[in-house]
Design a protein around this nucleic acid. Structure first.
Length: 499
RNA sequence: CGGGGCGUAGCGCAGUCCGGUAGCGCACCUGCUUUGGGAGCAGGGGGUCGCCGGUUCAAAUCCGGCCGCCCCGACCA
């Protein structure tokens, strides 16, 4: 970075900007093990706020939480052929249970403690969960099962980035079992809707929803739905997935029930998840050259109060005012923090909280106390708006909830405009190839459905089909020809280079 | 796994080419003055120079080996 104060500007090197801002906003840092990260309190509180919102929505749609174990017998993973293939190359195994000295001051696994069957650290929990469900379900009366779990999982990735791709990450995984395919399909769609609502209304991150092409489908699923967001560098981020698993796992784990007719039938499953990757998505959606920008609904601190003083007497008066104002706001359920640190100048505090993305700052100095006024400063200045507002104390207190709401919707509006400005509908391969590689963005175009066309695009541009968009996102009229081979289009597809 | 870079104080780095008492900035501690956009001055503390071995009177520096991390590519949420 240029110096220890400023961040690398996004326009200069987006990737460096991202790494720096995650570290310097104190969201997370690298741990001693490659691919693992320490999530620091500021980042974890953000995640907790996301969890709370999502968890409430899961509960409101009839789900319960449970917890299934970290370790999965290797033989379980082996049962579903596609599942094995999908995760074979990124599994961490537990093979020993004791260590012995190696004679050189170190420790090695005790050969005598080798497990008969290695245990897999879960990369996802379908197998262990459907094994349990198979014991829970006998009759159609036991269905549906609607369970979610909050857990950590491990996928031994070759290349990792804080939040976006780490070997261990935190997520939620929902796993449901239903009596009919229609019901399972409805569930997968319902969750897709829940995710979309969360991403738009809480994260202020617009998404395109749709179905994955076969090559991007979850290993073991009949089909996969996904939500894709466009980051500021015009690369797509898969922000969440919801799978209709059909009866693929039910067959392998003998998850059967007796129907009203008396016949035995395999249950229909769904699974769905979002992870701490969302934190990375939030950073790359709203962050600017000063730091991250947090939507008020998720910000660990919504209003930071920075007191300003010269003398000890002023300090006492100003701090007292700051605390009393903070308490009034707390009664309105606003998350407020008084930054009373004595060893830091007000200016330094401003930079600090701006880097950390706090939506609103309130300055209280001796002059404000005397005039019974407060100074409000927005993290992101609306176009044509004032950066600072000088308001009477009563006015300021009543206006803050309103400001927070404005900021929340403003962020979504800006992000949506950016996404729209970087979304293109093309019919010719030449211009597409050039644009998708050089400037990025979302590209809506026809697709014949052939894997060969998908592969050709990937090879030549590194772009992939992110989704076959849902009806509400599709073009009218729909594209007629395949972007790549000019054959008849069977689908409309959204192409982009992705994280 | 290929290519590149890095490992020296809590953080960021210089010093390595050309061996000779381990440095700078930030942070930290003490004191005074400060505080409305990254405070100043004075004093102070803090290091097995990634690890192991070799060469040498002498190694952060040269040689050999090993380890780790980051970045760029192939696989992935």
């Amino acid at each position: 970075m240029a110096d220890d104060k400023a961040l690398t500007p996004r326009g200069q090197d987006f990737s460096s900007w991202y790494n720096e801002v995650v570290l310097r906003a104190e969201l997370a840092e690298h741990s001693p093990v490659r691919g693992s990260m320490v999530i620091r309190p500021w980042g974890y509180t953000l995640w907790e706020n996301m969890q709370r919102a999502l968890d409430d929505m899961f509960k409101a749609t009839g789900h319960q939480n449970a917890y299934f174990p970290l370790l999965i017998p290797l033989s379980f993973i082996a049962r579903e052929a596609e599942h094995v293939e999908g995760f074979a190359k990124e599994m961490a195994l537990v093979t020993h249970t004791r260590v012995v000295p190696d004679g050189q001051g170190g420790l090695v696994p005790d050969p005598e403690s080798k497990l008969e069957e290695p245990l897999v650290i879960r990369p996802t929990s379908e197998t262990i969960i459907y094994d349990a469900y198979s014991r829970w379900v006998q009759s159609y009366r036991d269905l549906p099962i609607l369970i979610n779990q909050w857990a950590n999982v491990m996928r031994w990735e070759m290349r990792t980035r804080l939040f976006l791709r780490t070997a261990e990450f935190l997520w939620q995984e929902g796993h449901t079992a239903h009596a009919t395919n229609e019901e399972a399909e409805q569930e997968a769609q319902t969750i897709l809707g829940v995710y979309r609502t969360f991403m738009e209304e809480w994260m202020a991150m617009p998404v395109i929803t749709g179905r994955k092409s076969d090559s991007e489908r979850f290993p073991g699923a009949d089909h996969t739905y996904a939500l894709e967001a466009l980051m500021q560098d015009n690369r797509a981020l898969q922000a969440g997935t919801s799978h209709n698993l059909g009866q693929n796992f039910a067959r392998q784990f003998d998850l059967k029930f007796q129907a009203e007719s008396g016949d035995w039938e395999y249950a229909w499953n769904t699974s769905w998840g979002v992870s701490t990757r969302l934190v990375g998505g939030l950073v790359m959606t709203h962050g600017d050259d000063s730091g991250i920008v947090l939507p008020p609904k998720l910000a660990p601190v919504q209003v930071v109060i920075t007191p300003i003083w010269k003398t000890d007497e002023q300090q006492a008066v100003v701090l007292e005012k700051a605390e009393s104002v903070a308490n009034v706001l707390r009664q309105e359920n606003i998350r407020v923090h008084v930054d009373a640190r004595e060893n830091m100048s007000p200016g330094a505090k401003y930079y600090d909280w701006e880097r950390k993305g706090v939506p609103l700052r309130m300055e209280i100095g001796p002059r404000d106390v005397a005039k019974q006024q407060l100074v409000l400063v927005r993290r992101v200045v609306p176009e044509g708006g004032d950066r600072k507002e000088f308001l009477s104390e009563t006015m300021a207190l009543s206006v803050i909830p309103e400001r927070l709401r404005e900021i929340q919707v403003g962020l979504l509006a800006v992000a949506r405009r950016r996404q729209e400005a970087n979304t293109f509908r093309l019919t010719e391969y030449g211009p597409f190839k050039k644009m998708v590689a050089e400037r990025g963005g979302f590209y809506f175009a026809g697709w014949c459905g052939a894997v060969s066309c998908e592969d050709k695009v990937k090879e030549e541009t590194k772009a992939t089909i992110r989704v076959l968009p849902d009806a509400s996102f599709r073009s009218d009229p729909p594209p007629e020809r395949c972007l790549v081979c000019d054959g008849a289009a069977r689908h409309e597809a959204v192409w982009a280079r992705a994280y």
